[in-house]
Design a protein around this nucleic acid. Sequence first.
DNA 1: CCCCAGGTAGGCT
DNA 2: AGCCTACATGGG
Length: 307
Amino acid sequence: MNYLIEKNKIIVKCDEFNPTSIFECGQTFSYKKFDDVYVAYPESYLAVVYKDCDCYIIECLIGDVKYFINYFDLDNDYSKIISKINDINLTQNDLDRRLISESLKFGVGIRILKQEIVETIISFIFSANNNIKRFKASLDNLRKDYGVELKVNLDDVSKNVREIFKKEKFYSFPKLNVLKNLSLQYFLKIGAGYRANYLIDTIKKLDEFFKEDFDKLKSDELLKMILQLKGVGGKVGQCVLLFGFGRTDVFPVDTWIKQIYEDLNIGEEKKSVNEISKHLISIFKEYSGYAQQYLFYYKREIKNLNM
DNA sequence: CCCCAGGTAGGCT
DNA sequence: AGCCTACATGGG
């Protein structure tokens, strides 16, 4: 993708980068929307994203442009990915093809974020059988209570977004060695519910987990490993592979994907979540993760429009 | 008072 | 392996 760099700003074209799609498509919870500005605060970094003429500006306030070029996957060519997915011969059914191409059109500007692994694991354990608004608040509390304040120098910030940082503070996601010290009681307090036990157990196991050389592992092997962690099942595990490990040959299946799988006339009767996932991976292969995001976002947002 | 939320663990066949 | 159910919490 083409982008320009001016000091701490990355300037990107609208047709290949859409903040609403990127942030609202359910891959990250480390952001906040202010009218026409998004503040992204992955790990211990921070950037603001806003429109300027026919471009978007990514203003890197904490963390350099290199970090955010990688974070937003800017060196990846999504127009190529979209046309590859469009070319996949799903079925002979025209309706199916249209559903796919509508989804791709609808989600133009989506980019799969390269997220930090611990943050991704913790966030998606929270997400299970939970609603986004609720667990996003839990995660923001976790940042506020145990993260470090991300102090932005107001003199460095463009005028149009300065007001945000006068009113609002942002915090880093706590590092693993900090998470280790947190109690069951604390996780209950921020609303983890029955997931609190899973979180405590998983955090305990993470040091051992990170001793593994992940690069050697194929995605299904890596998935098997990550399923050892409590609170991580097929869906959460594949989300971690996709958003944390950058593995795109996975297809997380949740309630929305289950629905769209039924919309597509490719499923023979009721399949288990695991079987649906495998079937979709066999179709979309290394583009599975991308396809999943476009389809998920389309299905969820269209539903919202109808209501 | 019931149902739902980007599911998962544990127990049962 | 594949089904079943309980699971905390807050909101509709």
